[in-house]
Design a protein around this nucleic acid. Structure first.
Lengths: 193, 193
DNA sequence: ACATACATGTAAGTTGTTACATGATTAA
DNA sequence: TTAATCATGTAACAACTTACATGTATGT
């Protein structure tokens, strides 16, 4: 339900093609929302079936034609209905494969885990840098186009991404420190020794 | 792939039933991993089909019998193979419906958004309290049973949950402050006014 | 010559959710 | 007597991923 309505919401701002939507998602709301190209096309087809959007082919010179989608009246109504309907549980269940591996880290050499924690930190740092730069642009009005009222809310969601990325970097550092300490001073096993 | 191998990993510690696994997940690794009861049963059936686990009915007095699952030799091998195989992208895609609503918050009355941010904060705070208490127990050896080597890694994953929950509470506070400021001083629209 | 960006989609498979179905015991 | 805990599962549906299929234009 969320993906189709999120797409419907984006189309309130301006008509877009499936490809445009994918670009927009990857470059802006990527912290809290992602989707594969194929899924976007499928959701758009579903939205059109329910008459919440209509599409029209737009020819381009030297490029494939774009199928541009726009919301209908019913689509706008449906979006507003959905918007008021917040989920009952606001903190979503997480499923993090990296943490599953770490949880079972006792079955791995410490060096291997440290290597992947370092990788993790770099990824988190890259996200942090990206979101920080994007937030600066949004504040200066260099991004987000003509949307004035929206900017505040976009910044709030970006702030969440920044907070999470900052916490992730810190956590990776602290975790590496813990494991490095173990490496130097292996833990005692049982009562012997 | 992750869920089946995570279950396989849990069974390395001790034989468990589907119900036991559900209890364990909900009460300990809930920060980074969750699953519905029905899915757990399906994954267990799949693991048994692949001969990575075997099951046996265990009768109980006054209670329904339990189907206890244990890993086979092939299961232990497969688990270790998987454990070394970390995902290429360590920071997982997030899909957060609450943030999708907030992103489109300009379409809602500020009071409504503030109400849900307050709810969000309470939920995050409850998680923070729970994880903090669990970490304290783990450190004292009151939880986690006979697993000595595992405890370090369990604490690392819990630390992540704590970090995230802390950041979430802070973010909710800061976001409410921003929206309260807007409520007192509504934003100027365009050049008129 | 090869990769990337542009652009759309289908098919198949995996994973996750919701609803259904059953039934005993225990605590409020 | 009502709800919760214990305990297992199936069926249907919804959501998501991966692989496939096609083709142009541009940059290296």
């Amino acid at each position: 339900m969320s993906l189709s309505h999120a797409i419907l919401g984006l189309l309130q701002y301006q008509p877009m093609s499936g490809y445009d939507i994918k670009q927009f998602i990857d470059k802006s709301v990527n912290y809290f929302w992602s989707a594969k190209q194929s899924q976007i096309y499928r959701e758009l087809a579903g939205l059109e079936k329910r008459r919440w959007v209509v599409s029209a082919l737009e020819k381009q010179s030297g490029r494939p034609a774009k199928r541009m989608y726009s919301p209908t009246g019913a689509g706008r109504t449906e979006f507003l209905r959905w918007l008021h309907e917040f989920p009952a549980a606001l903190v979503e269940p997480v499923r993090d494969e990296f943490l599953v591996h770490l949880f079972f880290g006792n079955g791995l050499p410490v060096e291997e885990t440290l290597f992947h924690l370092e990788r993790y930190k770099k990824e988190a740092q890259a996200r942090l840098d990206y979101f920080t730069a994007l937030a600066a642009k949004l504040k200066n009005g260099e991004a987000g186009g003509d949307c004035a009222g929206e900017r505040v809310y976009w910044l709030l969601t970006l702030a969440k991404g920044i907070k999470m990325a900052e916490a992730s970097v810190q956590w990776a550092d602290e975790s590496m420190a813990v494991l490095n300490a173990i490496k130097r001073e292996p833990p005692k096993k049982g009562v012997k020794g």
